[in-house]
Design a protein around this nucleic acid. Structure first.
Lengths: 165, 165
DNA sequence: TTTATATTAATAATCATTATAAATTAAAAA
DNA sequence: TTTTTAATTTATAATGATTATTAATATAAA
């Protein structure tokens, strides 16, 4: 549980922004807070929220996520798989966290390090582009799949050795 | 027209990879090469290809783009708008080019500068993640919309001044 | 020239997401 | 506390980007 972004904070924000706090919205926020590291899709969030708010409809989850995204409570990220993922924004975070997307198993890991340094300033000055946010995703192979591939390579080698007369 | 990635190169690559060179595929590649800077969606590409290959179907464009993406001739990028965009990959490019996405008008500009330096190495070493590619997108306001906003602010100010008694 | 099979067009289907309209409810007002 | 208002929800339909299917067509190797 992040020290900054809490249910109470989000309640306040909704109120200040003129939105009502419904049980469905609260359940959705709770699920997001409980699963901060998981980069859940809307459908996944829906399934989890349903356990807290069984009558909820998928469309409501989508609406809630959209509202939270516009309020900048939540970050929405698209990878190349046709799904959007939703993360609670770390309050006070200086930059958006980055993602490591495994091309083999589809797992997504977070990188909190500030990898960009002053790049936003460079972009603003050189390209006259007022930067509000950014997204950085690395596509590659996670350590687990790298291990798997090594093991598989070993097995393949042994199988070939066994086959030889 | 990039000096590296040409129709001839792509023809060779298709052949070497065991794919046939159909007029539809050729037309698609031509459109992509002619519109390198434009970050076209599948639908936009389809409309352009149709001018060269009037009988072509949208599904064929999708299939061709998918094949070119798998062959790494084309890069597919997703922003948060539900569409995928397709760019010809610059042959020999050391890194993927970056994007400036304007939140106001939706325009997309390219950044060719290498903004990341050795970040991929850092990620590989620290996170044990074998990096194959990356995507970096800046969300913000383009210079045109910044100008527009300034002009609008000026107009608003004048309107307010006119209204005052 | 023939053959094999990759590829296409036309159409249907899928799926993530959004729209719709009646019903419900949160919270402000009385 | 009750009433009112309009925001919000549910259930369902609709949308649009993309993929699957199948008969027809076409590329390129033999």
């Amino acid at each position: 549980m992040s020290t900054g972004t809490t249910l109470a904070n989000i309640r306040n924000l909704l109120h200040q922004s003129g939105f009502k706090l419904t049980p469905q919205r609260e359940a959705t926020v709770l699920v997001l807070l409980e699963n901060e590291k998981d980069h859940l899709s809307a459908e996944e969030i829906y399934m989890l929220v349903k356990k807290k708010s069984p009558e909820i409809g998928l469309a409501t989850v989508y609406r809630t996520l959209e509202m939270l995204t516009e309020l900048k409570v939540v970050d929405k990220v698209s990878f190349n798989d046709g799904l959007s993922r939703y993360d609670v924004r770390k309050e006070g975070a200086k930059h958006f966290h980055h993602h490591l997307l495994c091309l083999e198993c589809g797992s997504i890991e977070e990188v909190e390090d500030d990898l960009l340094g002053d790049v936003e300033l460079i972009v603003e000055k050189k390209y006259h582009f007022l930067v509000k946010d950014h997204r950085l995703t690395f596509h590659g192979i996670c350590s687990k799949c790298q291990l798997k591939k090594k093991e598989q390579a070993v097995l393949d080698k042994e199988a070939a050795a066994t086959t030889l007369p």
